[in-house]
Write a protein that binds this DNA or RNA. Structure first.
Length: 592
RNA sequence: CGGGGAGUGGCUCAGCCUGGUAGAGCACCUGGUUCGGGACCAGGGGGUCGGAGGUUCAAAUCCUCUCUCCCCGACCA
């Protein structure tokens, strides 16, 4: 039996000064975790118990669809060279040298190691499909670790990888993961949403993120309560209401208009007496394009046109230009390249004026127009000339975009793309991610199997992750009050804490021991708070540490009764000592 | 990487401006009284004031450099 008096549960009366979010404060106060360095934490007794229970759930559900491995966290450089990621991943990867001077890194994900095994071992379609998973520490040198366990540099991840003969088979592996993830998060007692996620520049792939809404989250999810539409901000769209175009002025051709000193969208719109919706927003970026032959990168200007009141989503832009690196152009650079003052940049003749000190950009300027401007007429935009704008701009007539693309960030209250209901936007924590990888790793690392025709084919892959810490963190964020937090019994370090109000009283002490012993014999996870502390101290601690139920063994024992406190509601129910195991059987094991 | 804030006993913080050799509450140890929502009394232990250098008769305090942590932003395979 676990006796509090013998355990190390260092609760804190006050939260550490540097903790901001609820989960961070409470996990430290409750003695679950201690910080070692920025983004690096030790898990103490209670934390580790909760962790082990989460991991057990993950393992049980994953064993239904796959096989558990355990891979090294220390990887040789050559492995990551093979996939091209040694160079592609920047400072986020921890790198080190061994005594011989050879480069190593700490694994931040394990596509390479798994694919290496597949490459060496898989020979035939008969061996497919395979789903391999592991539960292991991952290392990422985050630019800014934050919020306790929410964003850390070492964490435990369940990562799995599927190998299939073709896309249809991958769909099956993907769906298995989708379902397994739902079972895992359901069993962990989390309220989550599954959102469509953008699948990167690889094209054609599918991706979903499992998100828990919380203020502490760093991601944005867009959702519709009416029809169930849900997507993350990088993927979300909304249905736009029609906008009345301005009437053509003059001869209908682009018409210069003097706008002295009017640089921002709002200024110009107000000055000309029009809505920002009739204005074009011009954003200039410089992308680094890699020449496939020389391997050199060269800068390539990317100019984006948005509706005046819309916001660009940089992730969407990144996808639209094929995942190239890009940065915003500085004002001087804009003048240098386009011979136009920043603030008056516009689409007409832009390619003609584009030059650079060391070359001509005229054939290289990418003009991207947001889909919201498709079919619009008589817009107002910059004239590439100090203090002048143009009226009557009609995309497709007055200038030819390189492409139309969805580049816009959705705003709360816009119309759902499916049903038209107002969308909501929430911050959320990503607890799981499933992703159809395609052929990226199997191709680059040379994994091949023979198909049923004896032809060599490349298996198609998926990768899937769950952040163990984030399950605990999300659960705490989801269920806390000013006194502490409560975890779902399935992932709580203990299900029940038995609290004799005074261990100096033999009757109370022996009754509490008896209750704890019987509950434990009935299969419950019980913590007996046998400390020689005043009741107030024990109640405060019990409320703090995340255990969902408490049995107060106090004065009512003379009547054969104890109190059961439901932590989530703080409701108190009297229960018969004789029937205490029945009480919890009904409460915690209703299915039996 | 840019901007902001903070490092003083285990925790929360005061002292710094105006230099004189360190304090409170909580926690901890001993004894006693207590015992249903973080008790009380008495006694006690514990601090290189993040580190280095400098100014000064004298530095937690002033100056320079540096390390660490937190927050906002950038970044996020």
């Amino acid at each position: 039996m676990c006796r509090w008096s013998e355990l190390f549960i260092p609760t804190l009366r006050q939260a550490p000064a540097d903790a901001e979010v609820a989960s961070h404060k409470f996990l430290v106060r409750a003695g679950y975790i201690r910080q070692l360095a920025a983004g690096i934490y030790s898990y103490l007794f209670l934390g580790q118990r909760s962790f082990n229970k989460i991991i057990a759930i993950v393992r049980q559900e994953m064993d239904k669809i796959g096989q558990e491995f355990y891979l090294p966290a220390l990887h040789p450089r050559e492995l990551w060279e093979a996939s091209g990621r040694w160079a592609a991943i920047g400072d986020t990867m921890f790198r080190l040298k061994d005594r011989k001077g050879a480069d190593l890194c700490l694994g931040m994900t394990e596509e390479e190691v798994m694919t290496e095994i597949a490459r060496k071992e898989l020979r035939s379609y008969k061996q497919l499909p395979q789903i391999w998973y592991q539960i292991q520490s991952k290392f990422r040198d985050e630019a800014r670790p934050k919020s306790g366990l929410l964003r850390v540099r070492q964490f435990v991840m369940k990562d799995s990888y599927s190998f299939d003969i073709d896309a249809a088979a991958l769909d099956v592996s993907y769906l298995k993961h989708y379902d397994a993830y739902c079972r895992i998060f359901d069993r962990c007692g989390l309220k989550y949403v599954v959102v469509e996620a953008h699948s990167g520049a690889m094209g054609g792939s599918q991706s979903h993120e499992f998100m828990v809404r919380t203020d502490a989250g760093e991601d944005l999810v867009v959702s519709c309560e009416k029809c169930g539409y849900a997507a993350n901000m990088e993927k979300a769209t909304s249905r736009l209401r029609p906008v009345d175009d301005l009437p053509a002025e003059g001869n209908g051709k682009p018409l210069e208009v003097h706008t002295p000193g009017q640089k921002t969208i709002e200024d110009v719109a107000r000055y000309l007496g029009v809505s920002p919706k009739n204005k074009m927003k011009t954003l200039a970026y410089m992308a680094d394009e890699r020449d496939p032959e020389t391997g050199k990168t060269r800068p390539r200007p990317v100019v984006v046109f948005m509706r005046g009141d819309h916001q660009l989503n940089e992730t969407k832009l990144s996808s639209a230009i094929g995942g190239k690196e890009f940065r915003t152009m500085q004002a001087e650079e804009i003048e240098q390249v386009f011979h136009s003052p920043a603030g008056f940049l516009g689409p007409i003749g832009l390619k003609d004026v584009a030059t650079a000190k060391d070359g001509d950009f005229s054939d290289g300027v990418i003009l991207l127009v947001d889909e919201a401007l498709k079919g619009r007429q008589n817009l107002i935009g910059g004239a590439n000339k100090e203090d002048y704008h143009l009226k009557n701009i009609t995309p497709g007539r007055d200038f030819q975009p390189t492409a139309y693309a969805d580049l816009r960030s959705v705003a709360a209250g816009e119309d759902c793309p499916n049903c038209g209901e107002a969308l909501r936007v929430d911050t959320a924590v990503e607890i799981g991610h499933i992703f159809k990888l395609g052929y990226k790793y199997s191709e680059s690392m040379g994994a091949r199997v023979l198909d049923r025709n004896g032809k060599e084919v490349t298996p198609i892959m998926g990768s899937y992750g769950i952040g163990i810490e984030r399950i605990l963190t999300a659960a705490v964020e989801q269920s806390n009050d000013e006194h502490g937090f409560w975890l779902p019994p399935q992932i709580a370090p203990f299900e029940i804490v038995v609290t004799p109000t005074n261990v100096g009283d033999d009757k109370l002490r022996t009754t509490a021991e008896d209750i704890a012993r019987r509950l434990e014999a009935a299969g419950f996870e019980v913590l007996l708070d046998d400390r020689d502390e005043r009741p107030g101290v024990k109640f405060k601690d019990a409320d703090l540490v995340g255990i969902p139920f408490r049995v107060n063994v106090g004065k009512k024992v003379t009547e054969g009764t104890v109190e059961v406190v439901h932590r989530s509601t703080r409701e108190i129910q009297n229960a018969s000592i004789a029937a205490i195991t029945d009480y919890f059987e009904k409460l915690l094991r209703p299915a039996r």
